[in-house]
Design a protein around this nucleic acid. Structure first.
Lengths: 324, 324
DNA sequence: GTGAAAGCGCTAACAC
DNA sequence: GTGTTAGCGCTTTCAC
């Protein structure tokens, strides 16, 4: 104990934690003793003693950090939290509901101050008890089901509808749509928005060209190739997220009839401007910042009803949908 | 306390922590009482009592998660750690040494089990005392200075040399090089490797076309435009990381004389294959996995001398350096 | 300005 | 199988 080098127990605490009420000289003595011993305050013990809500940890549960959507979300979230003295602890679920459950438990056991979750679960009723006693939740990207909680979502339906309309305006009628895991609400919303525009245009059989569950780049590439091999082939493709768009670009690059196929993707791409890919863009960092702000206001004592923020998307027109 | 609902104190602990030696019936009773009360074990308290090294947290300090290099590193690291029951806590330094110091302290106060750091500091001697008593460090991407510690690095020099050689083989003599913050060792190594190849080819004045400190995409774009405006302009450009390459692609796309300029970049790009950008590629996830393994072996009691893993890079030839 | 004692929630050690 | 006691490292009282 650093106390040995100085002359006390509690005084050391006062000196090192900057509580004040310590003689300047004493403080200096304790400080140097601590440095020498390589001693460091134990924040864990402090938080335990202080009781209640003193942890400075906020958990993030998301699919996979290697996906730029999640990593940009995490980046925006972390920056905003850090400005308020909070730290981010991340856990990847790989879109596996079972893991998500386990990781949620683990974070709650750690008494995180709050939880931000891009959930892959079908249902969140089991968290109701938790929410009453425990830390606030903020859902991002996908809304809570059977649970009232704050959420920051995208205008998936509107964005997808706009994508379809854009293609329809360009004269396309046979439009392929390649989607992610069909159980995800984001996927369903995007398909719905697409359907709305297609049906409004009198195209009832759009499902002919619907391919789902293309969860990674490889699957997406194969799905798009399969679509292009149809007879008649679609003249345009809508891909419902960044990875699927990547797969589609790989497929289209392979030539064949693909070169002429129009493409529009949901989510901005890192090099979307250079590649000239038309996209439905939005701002993942902004989503993270919003989530942080909602959480912070709850930590600040806001007991109001659950809030739902819906972030807009915008069409960024580039060459993959330019008139041929 | 859940003990009230059941009939004990320690027994509850035994039941909930799965220690065993509890009657099946008792266990069930405690369990359901806990569920009702929304009670949850406090892992923080447990770790405190257990003392020593029982935390399951591993810290990662890196530049910015929004950069795919770091997020892929984090992803690889997290996956490997998770398989061994460890969780990742991330902190972004934004390449600010002062923040890195503060964040390091904060993680150590939290008694993380180990620390993985892509350091932006010039010097790490101050961590020597820490290392003796505390948790192991693993340096990634950039080596420790004045400190002996495990490290996972890239073959920066070799990769950059290969890049220059590739351009020289294609007949280029005036080759621009645009680099990141000049104080970073990765930058310096890459410039050195480049210089080696250039000087071996008898090009002594390569520094004429060296531009440094292009730390973000915008700065890189402007740097490349400035380079192209020179007279005589370089016929090829080597960009020393992913963001700079992105900036360069934006600059080259703007036409002018740029269209003909050859380009090779360090780091793979998300859509590098689709865009046809020649790169010096490597595997950030693999770097994360290696770091995790080094850390795990230290936690496992390995007291051997510090190890240094150098990961290879490879040239991926695509159209931006194809003969015109 | 400083110290002594008690206790945060848990578990190791030793009872019973 | 279960309960008791003590103590992890800190901070909160309340003294001095």
């Amino acid at each position: 104990m650093a106390a040995l080098s100085g002359v006390s127990v509690k005084t050391a605490s006062r000196a090192l934690s900057g509580e004040g009420y310590v003689a300047v000289e004493t403080k200096a003595r304790v400080q140097s003793a601590a440095d020498e011993l390589g001693y460091r305050l134990n924040r864990t013990a402090r938080e335990l003693r202080r009781g209640g809500n003193t942890s400075t940890l906020v958990g993030l549960l998301s699919g996979d950090l290697a996906n730029p959507f999640y990593s940009r979300l995490a980046s925006g979230l972390e920056r905003e939290l850090r400005m308020h003295g909070l730290q981010l602890i991340t856990a990847s679920t790989d879109e596996n509901p079972e893991w998500e459950g386990r990781l949620t438990d683990s974070l709650l056991e750690r008494r995180v101050r709050g939880l931000v979750v891009a959930s892959t679960m079908a249902e969140h009723g089991h968290l109701a008890a938790e929410r009453r006693h425990g830390s606030p939740f903020v859902f991002v990207d996908r809304p809570p089901v059977n649970l009232t909680a704050d959420a920051v979502l995208l205008d998936n339906r509107g964005g997808a509808k706009r994508a379809a309309e854009h293609l329809l305006e360009r004269g396309h009628r046979r439009i392929g749509i390649v989607g992610d895991l069909s159980r995800l609400s984001t996927h369903q919303d995007r398909v719905e928005g697409f359907a709305e525009a297609m049906e409004a245009a009198g195209i009832a059989d759009w499902r002919e060209y619907l391919l789902e569950d293309a969860h990674d780049v490889d699957k997406a590439e194969r799905a798009v190739l399969a679509l292009l091999a149809r007879d008649p082939a679609p003249t345009a493709v809508f891909t419902t997220n960044n990875r699927i768009t990547t797969g589609a670009l790989r497929a289209l690059r392979q030539g064949g009839g693909g070169r002429d196929t129009a493409l529009i993707g949901f989510d901005e791409l890192d090099l979307g401007d250079v590649l000239g890919v038309t996209v439905i863009a939005h701002d993942p960092e902004e989503m993270g910042r919003h989530a942080a702000r909602l959480l912070l206001s709850r930590l600040d004592g806001d007991e109001g009803p659950a809030r739902r923020v819906v972030l807009p998307t915008r069409l960024v027109e580039r060459s993959t949908t330019a008139p041929r």
